[in-house]
Amino acid sequence: MSLIPPFDFQRVFVEPWAEGGALHGWILAMAVLVGMACGLVGNYLLLRRMALIGDAISHSVLPGLVLAFMLAHSRHIGVMFAGALAAGLVTVFLIEFIHKKSRVKPDAAICITFTTLFAIGVVLTSLIDKGGLHIDAECILYGEIAFVPLEPPVKILGRALGPQPVLQMLGVTAGVVVLIVLFYKELLASSFDPGLTASLGFNVTAMHYGLMAALSIVVVSAFEAVGAIMVVAMLIIPGMTAAQLSDHLATRHWLVGVHSILSGLLGLHLSVWLNCSMAGAMVLTGAGFFVLAWLFSPSQGMIHRWRRPDAPGDTVSQFQ
């Protein structure tokens, strides 16, 4: 069938780097940075069982972006971040409001909130004159990581450093890493036992909202590259894979880094081979790694469990 092109090592693995190496280099850099920033935040979302809050915020930054653009008539990075932060906070607030003030359960409240906000965003994007705002249905759904190298480069002292989104993502990833290094203990403790953490004198609420703010910033930076829906994959799949392999949070952070590099690289080649959406191919590769870890993880993989059904449970192994 002509749908899947024949596999040609030369075309798939050599040509992207031989011709247009810089182009693919920037795409790969963007993919790895998106994977890292999202995955690191995602590790905490998974621990706190808030994966679907990530889903909600990744949808609701859309109206935030569009409204910020409409109000400020600029797509300056500060404006976009402000819009995303506002959208993230409004989402969290609305979810809380609906399920505290009525008897609607939290899951339904999440669903209602983000679909409404997302629908507002879609309607606004089709209504406004998008002079300079690169957000349309294509971008929301498929992501436009392939166009990242074509963005105007950032120049410092007359020298072009690289495309603006990649550098922005680099800054955001660095920020996430710094925050995790600074607040590693606090984040760890408040994710596992908020009650204990609060009694030790740490501000658990501030941790929560700080995490939400970081999530909004990360999501908005990754938004144009991978689209609203596949951001969710970037948030949780690396963390899920890492959790299959290790029970130690710091190790999971490193594994997330490895996962994002591998899935970015292989995803890029997969999309060159199949001639399909790059973001989609990267997510698929990442999901493939999760399936591998699911089956073959030495400590908790399916094979391991099947061969040793009476193996000590996961929770026990943490304390040994």
Binding site: R49, D55, V232, I236, S271, S277, G280, A281, V283, R305
Partner: peptide, 29 residues
């Protein structure tokens, strides 16, 4: 049933990876 991941993670995984597969096939089409 076979991992220690909670419901939210499982739902998010299915949502995003199936959607990505669909996106890939549609863009190929």
């Amino acid at each position: 049933s076979t991992t220690k991941h909670k419901e939210d993670a499982a739902l998010g995984f299915v949502l995003a990876s199936f959607f990505a597969l669909g996106v890939c096939v549609i863009t190929m089409l």
